[in-house]
């Protein structure tokens, strides 16, 4: 069994009010390390066996069509060992 991970993030130029809210909550708790925070989504997809190139291409397609909205988001597909 292998796990394919799709990380979806808002494009850098799109305002991320949730990330901003987290960024402003951190220093209130004494965490002063953050210059900025962006919040995204992570999909973990399990498949049987090792993924083939064709399967990864299918996941890329699904990420483009459903898992992300290319108007506002970027995504990265990777295989987690």
């Amino acid at each position: 069994m292998a796990k394919i991970v799709v990380d979806v993030m808002l494009k850098p130029e799109i305002l991320d009010p949730q990330g901003n809210a987290v960024a402003s909550a951190l220093p209130r708790l004494g965490f002063t390390f953050a210059q900025s925070v962006r919040q995204g989504k992570r999909f973990e997809i399990e498949i049987a066996g090792e993924p083939t190139a064709a399967q990864l291409a299918e996941v890329e397609k699904a990420a483009e069509v459903l898992l992300s909205n290319p108007v506002i988001e970027n995504f990265v597909v990777r295989v987690e060992k």
């Binding site: 808002l10 305002l15 009010p17 909205n69 108007v71 506002i72």
Partner: peptide, 17 residues
């Protein structure tokens, strides 16, 4: 309609959350 690409752009979280 935006998700369907019948209209351009997208609607995101209100700026003040």
């Amino acid at each position: 309609l935006c998700e369907s690409h019948l209209l351009p752009g997208a609607l995101t979280r209100n700026s003040d959350l």
